[in-house]
Write a protein that binds this DNA or RNA. Structure first.
Lengths: 114, 114
DNA sequence: TCCATATTTCAACGATTATTGAAATAATGG
DNA sequence: CCATTATTTCAATAATCGTTGAAATATGGA
């Protein structure tokens, strides 16, 4: 993941309501959730929600599809995974957030299997 | 890590220059870097930099200490680690960013709630 | 077709953001 | 003390953000 995309994804998640929306989508899994169901669950106005959905989609964190009268939103796990990968690689110093890397530029290292 | 803190940390990292600053701090390790060195490395005005440092500190992602005439900033790895943990736990569906399945009984049984 | 439902679009608004320039503060050395 | 270096504080600015209300659009059913 590129830095630009990481910033976009971070910005998309860096907002209370939007983070709630995304968490809900994650729980819903690939099946997703209708905009209405999310609006009800989080008590948000539908137009406000559309605004936030747009942000999530622009950041590659969500998808939409129409299903009858409803719009079904779903999380893009791939992007989220890439974001966590970016943070771990670039902002942690290596494998985990261990403090003491040397002053050399961080290089990709083989991932320790979980 | 609480949701509020996560949002704060995400917001702190969700900006080009600030992400650059933080990455530099991560590379520098616990020893940190002087404001001046960072200003030169990233070609940023010192007052602009102070603004960004404040954001990082408020979010718990950096610390300062005075060293002679210079201010030395360092990354707070602990917070970063907690953030990645929060994202993995709350926004990925469990272990990695697998499409939320076995780790939690996600309830998703409803035919378009009225 | 008309009607109800589900969601989006649009225009507005106050609030926050990132940046700049100028001035202030803190530490060091002569 | 004075000058220099390093950084912060302050005020101002344009740009973006999150929310709201009103109106528009799309779908499915009677």
């Amino acid at each position: 993941m590129e830095k630009t995309d990481a910033v976009a994804a971070l910005a998309a998640l860096a907002q209370d309501n939007r983070l709630d929306v995304f968490r809900l989508l994650v729980q819903a899994g690939p099946a997703g959730m209708t905009a209405g169901a999310i609006a009800e669950a989080l008590d948000l106005a539908p137009n406000t929600l559309t605004f936030h959905f747009d942000r999530l989609r622009m950041a590659g964190l969500a998808t939409v599809r129409r299903e009858g009268r409803s719009m079904v939103y779903a999380a893009r796990f791939e992007t989220m995974n890439a974001l966590v990968g970016f943070l771990t690689e670039n902002c942690c110093g290596g494998v985990s957030c261990a403090p003491a890397a040397s002053s050399k530029p961080a290089r990709k290292r083989s991932k320790t299997p979980a």
